[in-house]
Amino acid sequence: MKNKKLLSLPYLIWMIGFTVIPLILILWYGFVDSTGAFTWDNILAIFRSEHLKPLGISLALSAASTVLCLLIGYPLALILRKAHIKKSGLIIFVFILPMWMNFLLRTYAWLNLLDDGGLILNIAQALGFRGNIVGTNGAILLGMVYNYLPFMILPLHNSISAIDDNVLNAARDLGANETQVNTRVILPLSVPGIISGVTMVFVPSLTTFVISDILGGRKVLLIGNIIEQEFSTASNWNLGSGLSLILMVFILISMAILNRYDKEGSTLA
């Protein structure tokens, strides 16, 4: 029995080497300057306007894309629940299929529609729209919703379709109308799915630099772009690490908030 436990050791060493130590490195780089002396500068740099503004846009866009995905995905999951089980398997397959297309190509695909000569821009211009779509916050928001919508639909569908029909029938027998069934029974029972979906949309939206690179036309910078540039072109790893630490703090905060709702949700259920 003893030697079996030893089998877990190589993995522990691997994970310490490739996960724990790298994170400590980020922490280290974030708190020292280029000479190796301790400093708060890399952390406090977030308050400089050229960093604060991208962080603000990132937070606003990722919050907006999360809310939009939830508003679009929730009715869809409700409709799928009511659809025939055989049919809903096929429908969910159709809605997940775009996920297999390369993430960058999916984003690039919108460039074909929104950029000069693209179908949507042409239609918008025919309707009297002047200006560009690419390079606006709206284009980036669209890219986020498009890319991460399946990540919202899946957990919502999983949790809503798992609700027992008998529970809903019991609510109806006890006099609940359809609205009450939706808000007082289905909604609380789907909280775990909502939380999964929200995390899966919010975190990648907050940290993305690809969507803003492709659809932002180099005019919109998100905090992800700033960090990526510090590492790839500017080669200021200390500053990049400091800003990454700030980003991690926001991710942890959002998870802590969601965690609280999860507990409230499960007591409701």
Binding site: M15, F18, P22, L23, L25, I26, T207, S241, I251
Partner: peptide, 21 residues
């Protein structure tokens, strides 16, 4: 808990930390 770190973390931070390593 250790197993969950890469799943929890954003890809951006995972990628950067490995690059630094």
């Amino acid at each position: 808990a250790i197993n969950n770190i890469p799943l929890l973390n954003s890809d951006l931070v995972t990628g950067l930390s490995l690059m630094l390593l």
